[in-house]
Design a protein around this nucleic acid. Sequence first.
DNA 1: GCAGTTTCGTTGCATGTGCAATGAAGTCAA
DNA 2: TTGACTTCATTGCACATGCAACGAAACTGC
Lengths: 150, 150
Amino acid sequence: MPDDDLPPLPGFDLDHFTPYRLSVAAERVSEELARVYRERFGLSIPQWRVLVHLASSGDVSVREIEARVAMEKSKVSRAASRLEAAGLIGKTVNDADRRLVRLSLTAKGRALMAELLPLAEAYQREIEARLGASFAAFAAGLETLLGARR
Amino acid sequence: MPDDDLPPLPGFDLDHFTPYRLSVAAERVSEELARVYRERFGLSIPQWRVLVHLASSGDVSVREIEARVAMEKSKVSRAASRLEAAGLIGKTVNDADRRLVRLSLTAKGRALMAELLPLAEAYQREIEARLGASFAAFAAGLETLLGARR
DNA sequence: GCAGTTTCGTTGCATGTGCAATGAAGTCAA
DNA sequence: TTGACTTCATTGCACATGCAACGAAACTGC
């Protein structure tokens, strides 16, 4: 019996608190997926995001990736530096606007993505299978939460 | 025109990649909520999680919180130290097993939670409102993703 | 009772992150 | 052109984090 009697706290069940569950679920899924990037390809999540964006959108600047992929520009910048060091992307100055950096996949980076993207797609299908019939509603819910912001 | 012709990469749309969307959604929701803890009460997310668990489960050890609340024990330990420094919780040795630390809310901590928990509940209701009819399916999806592990 | 092992919580260390400051480049108005 | 202002990418710095190592305490089998 810890205390005398104090005003009772409102009952609160963390397990039904959506922000918490959402956060833990995201962590688990990300971790599960990140293991593949890391162990098989030596990539971090920020690096993976940059690569995916390059693969689907051609050459882009750091700024574009920042906006498009929900990552701080410093995070993008550092991820890009490492990808460059690993020979997966190239960085050149944009001639039209010399403040901008033009990131582009190297042949090596392209080859890596050709291997990686199918794995990502397979994982996506696995998640859809796990969620079954409620997948559509779940995805819609995610979009709602994302759209409701700014 | 960046390259000659290389084997085309499989098309991949990050916006329909559930792990990514999930991760960004969680980040946004957490950030929105964390702002309240931080600005109004000076609490970090780990600290908040410890407090919530103490509020709903009475006195517990670090180990229990780690298991219950999906946080590394070092994270729990550091959060607890700061909460103690802030006078919100107390740490005592468990007499039955002197390896264990007994964490418990102080009167000050209790008072804080009495203020904070209603805000959390209000936020929960707001999320439910945002999601509307699909909330149940969304929450069920989260549970599926959480349960499918280990 | 006692060596060997396990569990608990803390801490040292290397790494990742956000934020603010910086410098280079571009824009705009006069 | 010049000078004030903005935009872009990088980097310095302070701080959070994960992991491994550690010491203390508790079990375990003998």
